[in-house]
Simulated assay, not measured.
Amino acid sequence: MISSPPKLREELEVIRGMDDIPLIFDPVTGNYHRISRAGEVVLTYLDGTRTRDDLVAFLARADQRRAEALSGQIDTFLAALDRSGLLEGSEPPGKPKDRGRVRGSMMMPRIVLTRSLPRVLEPLAVVLRAVPARLLVLIAALGALAGYAFGFHTLFTVMPAPRDLAGPAFLLGTGVMLLYVLMHETAHALVAQMLGTPVRGLGVALLFYFMPVAYVDRTDAYRFRGRGGRVVLAMAGILSDGWFCALSGVIALNSGGLLRDVAVLVLGMQLLMLIINLNPLMPSDGYTALEAATGFTNARGRAFALLRHTVRREELPAYLANLSKAARRGHMAYGLFAVAYICLLAYATFRALPATVNLALSAVGR
C-alpha cells in the first residue's frame, strides 16, 4: 500500500493516443503507459498534498459504499504506477539497458540500422512543410494510383517466360526490392518528421527469426492528434511504392534481356507487397490507416464479432450494441470486405500455383 502522499513525477506527460485513449509518456525510458479515463482523472489529484485515504474520501464524496469500492481500485491503480516507476519516490525506472543495435522479441528480433533518420530527413521536411499539405497529399496519391495502374499493366503485357526470371534475374530483383522496401519505410519516416513526431530508428526485423522485414519505429506517432496526418503517415509507404512501381514499369517497357526480366520480377514483387500492405487481417499499413481514419482500435475484432453475432442471430454484446448505426454499418462493410479478400486471395493463390511450380522448377534447372 502507498502510505506517503502519492505524487506523479514532474517530467511525465499525459497525452491522448488512438481512440482518444489516455497515455502517460515517460521521457526517461521513452515508454508510453496506457491508463483508463478514470485513471486520468485520478492523476490530476496526485500532487503530493493528498494521502491515499484522502483520495478515497475526496472521490467518494461521503458515500461509504462508494468509498469501499474505490478503496481497492485506488490501491490497484497506485500500485501499478509505483511498479512502473511513475510516482515520486518509487523505484527509479532507469534507462533501458544498452543492448547495442539488437532488440529482442519472442517472434521478431529487431536490428536497428540507424537512429539518424530525423537529422538526415529534416532538411527535406523543411522544404515540404512549405507546400500546402493537401496539395502534397493529392500529388502523392494521384501519382501513386497512376504508377500502380501503369506498372501492373506493364507486368501483365511484357511478362517473359518463367525460366527467364530464375537465376541472376531473381537475385538482382530481390536486391532491388530490398532497396524499394527501404524507401517504403523511409517514406513513413519522412511524413513522421514533417508532422513533428520523428521516428526513433530504422532497422530490420526477422519475422519468425528468418524472414527479413524492414521497419521504422513510429512509437511517437501517438503524439500527433490529427486523424488526417495519422492516415497519411500510415499510407506513406504505399504511396511511395506506387511511384516506384511506375519506375519499374518504365524500365520493363523500355529495355530487354536481363534488365527487363529484373524489372518485371520487381513488378511482381511490388504487386505482392501491395496485397500484403492492404491485408485487412493483419496490422498492415492499410489496416493502420483505417484505424487512424475511424478513430477505432481493434476494428477487425469488432467487425468479425458483429458478423458472427449477426449470422447466428445472437444478441449483440454491449460494446457492439452501443455503436452508432453508421459505425455498425462501417464495421459490417469492413468485415464483408475482409471475407471477400480471403476468398480472392485463395482464388489467386490457386490460379498462380502452376506458374509458381514452373518457376521453382526452372530455378533448379528442370
Rank of each mutant, 00 (worst) to 15 (best):
L70S: 08
M332R: 15
L172M: 11
R223E: 01
P6W: 03
P283Q: 12
R52F: 12
R61C: 05
R308L: 08
L258A: 09
L46G: 05
S71L: 01
G249M: 07
T219K: 10
I238C: 02
Y180H: 10
L128I: 12
G268V: 09
P93G: 12
D26K: 04
P132A: 07
Q193L: 03
V199S: 04
V264S: 00
V213A: 15
V14E: 00
L281D: 11
L281R: 11
L87E: 11
L281W: 10
V56T: 06
K95C: 02
Q64V: 11
P160G: 04
V28N: 02
L138H: 07
G228R: 15
A140I: 00
G226W: 05
G72K: 11
E291I: 03
M106Y: 08
L23G: 00
R312H: 08
A205N: 06
A214P: 06
A221F: 12
G147R: 07
F210W: 15
H188P: 10
R218V: 15
A305L: 07
A166C: 13
R101T: 06
Y319A: 12
R260C: 05
V191D: 03
V311E: 03
A189R: 06
L172N: 03
E88L: 10
E10S: 13
M1N: 13
G17V: 00
V357N: 05
T288H: 14
L233D: 00
P317K: 02
T44A: 13
G89N: 14
T197D: 02
Q270H: 06
P5N: 07
L265A: 15
R134H: 08
V250L: 13
G30L: 03
L206S: 03
G39N: 09
N298L: 15
M194W: 04
P96A: 03
L253G: 11
F208E: 05
D47F: 09
G256C: 01
V250S: 06
A340H: 01
C343E: 06
V126E: 12
A348K: 12
G286T: 13
A352I: 09
V204M: 13
K7L: 07
S84M: 04
L290K: 08
Y341C: 04
L207N: 01
A348Q: 14
H331R: 09
A348H: 07
D241N: 14
H188E: 10
A326L: 12
R329Q: 10
E185N: 03
Y222C: 00
S362W: 03
H309I: 07
M194L: 09
H331D: 11
L353P: 01
R50F: 13
A360C: 12
L320Q: 05
D75A: 12
G226M: 12
L265C: 05
H33Q: 02
V213E: 13
P93T: 08
T154Y: 02
R225S: 14
R9W: 05
V181M: 13
A340Q: 02
T174M: 15
V41T: 14
A133Y: 05
V127L: 15
R119N: 08
R34V: 00
L320K: 05
D20N: 14
F244N: 07
K7N: 03
H33W: 11
M282Y: 14
Y215G: 04
K325L: 09
R260V: 07
G365L: 12
P162D: 09
R52A: 00
